[in-house]
């Protein structure tokens, strides 16, 4: 038997909203430690890895590990039927999981709706992502990162990110001309969510597709801060951390001339 009840249902709505453009079908791997998902976009240029800890649900019950093969478009349609204040419960019979039950209860509990989503068999390759000691780790307000991606997209569909000890610089070059945004670390200790920090092993400069980065910023509502991790000739990691877990986006760089 699998049952996971989340009082902040809105969080699940936002999470699914932040991956729906990137991934169509995916397996939700459920175990006693929680729910995780890993999937690449169709072009295999980006990968999303999502993890929700069992402690974030109450109750959480997963008698044995199993996978829920889900079409995310269909799941998103059903999630639209949940109110932002609703408590959301996911239930499945872990032996013959051919459908996922979703329960939406409003706060005063006089309105309860129940949906069943047909599950699919999805055989997806699972990539092993080694723990990496990145050349540069940058923390910044997630809204700031979203704005930089949106602004520089008017100039080009690629952005070069340069990180040095005391600056992260985003540069775009295109037909109309060029644009760049430079951020310096802040020391505002009174407003931690506004802070910008740079942890530098060595300077790094990489180029990425802004189309994908803009897509990743759908995770902005999940967290005040976003973490960018860069290493030479490695995919960029963009992480939005929540109390219950995290959503990580990986993007392969553009390399060579």
């Amino acid at each position: 038997m699998f049952e996971a009840r989340l009082t902040q249902g809105a969080l699940l709505k936002r999470l699914l909203d932040s991956v729906k453009e990137l991934v169509t079908d995916a397996n939700f791997d459920c175990s006693e430690t929680g729910i995780s998902l890993q999937a690449m976009d169709n072009s295999h240029v980006a990968l999303v890895s999502l993890s929700l800890r069992a402690e974030g649900f109450n109750p959480y019950r997963c008698d044995r590990g199993f996978s829920l093969g889900v079409n995310l478009n269909s799941l998103n349609k059903i999630m639209k039927c949940a109110g932002n204040e609703d408590v959301i419960t996911l239930k499945a019979d872990d032996s013959s999981a051919d459908s996922l039950c979703l329960l939406f209860e409003n706060s005063s509990n006089e309105r309860v709706s129940e949906y069943e989503l047909k599950l699919m068999d999805i055989d997806q390759e699972h990539l092993s992502i080694p723990e990496t000691d990145y050349d540069a780790t940058v923390m910044m307000p997630s809204a700031e990162f979203q704005r930089i991606c949106r602004d520089l997209m008017v100039v080009s569909e690629s952005v070069t990110i340069d990180v040095s000890k005391d600056e992260i610089k985003f540069t775009a070059e295109g037909e109309l001309g060029t644009g760049n945004v430079k951020l310096k670390p802040t020391s505002t200790i009174d407003k931690p969510e506004e802070s910008i920090t740079i942890e530098l092993g060595q300077t790094v400069s990489l180029q990425f597709s802004l189309k994908y980065l803009s897509n990743f910023t759908r995770g902005t509502p999940l967290s005040d801060q976003v973490m960018l991790c860069l290493s030479d000739n490695m995919p960029l990691l963009v992480e939005y951390k929540m109390d219950i877990g995290y959503i990580r986006y990986y993007l392969a760089p553009k390399v060579g001339d």
């Binding site: 072009s43 240029v45 995919p235 001339d257």
Partner: peptide, 14 residues
């Protein structure tokens, strides 16, 4: 122009 790489150029299957 630089070439867009793939995630699978860096991370392999488990």
């Amino acid at each position: 122009l630089k070439k867009q790489h793939k995630i699978t150029d860096f991370y392999s299957e488990e």
